[in-house]
Computed example of a mutant assay.
Amino acid sequence: MSQEFMLAGETPSPELVAAWLALDELRAEQVPMWAADWLVAGYDGVALAELAGLSGRDTREVRDLLPAALVEAGVRPLSSKGAALKVAFDHIAYLHVSGRARWAWVVNQVVEVVSGAGYVEEAFGQPLAQLYGVDDEMSEPWSRSDEELAGVVRQACLDQIAGAGPSA
Rank of each mutant, 00 (worst) to 15 (best):
L39P: 04
R57T: 08
V107I: 14
W38E: 07
V46T: 10
E137I: 07
R144K: 10
V114P: 02
E25V: 14
G82L: 09
L149W: 01
E29S: 15
A88M: 11
V106C: 06
F89G: 10
V46C: 01
G118N: 11
W34P: 03
D90H: 12
P127Q: 11
E121C: 12
R63D: 08
D136K: 09
D44A: 15
L95Q: 15
L54Q: 13
D159K: 12
D135K: 05
E25S: 15
D146V: 02
V114H: 10
A47K: 02
V152D: 00
D64R: 15
L70H: 03
G99W: 09
A101D: 04
Q30P: 02
P127H: 08
V152F: 12
Y132M: 01
L70P: 05
C157I: 04
G56Q: 03
D135H: 14
E140M: 15
L70M: 11
L128S: 00
T59F: 02
E121S: 15
V31I: 08
V106R: 07
E112A: 12
R102I: 12
V114T: 10
L78H: 02
V46M: 03
I161L: 15
L26F: 09
A150P: 00
Y119W: 13
E121T: 13
I92P: 10
V113P: 00
F89R: 15
A84L: 13
A73Y: 01
W142F: 15
Q126E: 05
V62G: 03
S98A: 12
Q160E: 14
V153A: 08
R144P: 00
R102V: 11
E121Q: 14
S115A: 11
V113N: 07
A35W: 06
G118V: 11
V75L: 10
A68Q: 04
E25W: 04
A41V: 03
A28R: 10
Y132N: 00
E50C: 06
V62N: 03
A49M: 01
W34I: 06
V113Y: 04
A93R: 03
E148M: 14
W34K: 07
E29R: 14
V106S: 01
H91N: 09
S139C: 07
E121I: 08
V110C: 05
A162T: 01
V152L: 13
L54S: 02
E121F: 05
A117W: 11
L128W: 01
D146P: 07
Q126C: 07
G116T: 10
A41I: 02
L70R: 04
L128F: 07
E147H: 04
V111H: 03
V152K: 06
R102G: 15
A47P: 00
K81P: 00
C157T: 03
D135W: 09
Q126Y: 02
E148T: 08
R154S: 09
D44Y: 05
V75T: 06
H91K: 13
W34L: 11
L158Y: 00
P77D: 02
I161T: 04
A47W: 00
G82I: 05
Q130T: 05
A73T: 08
D37I: 10
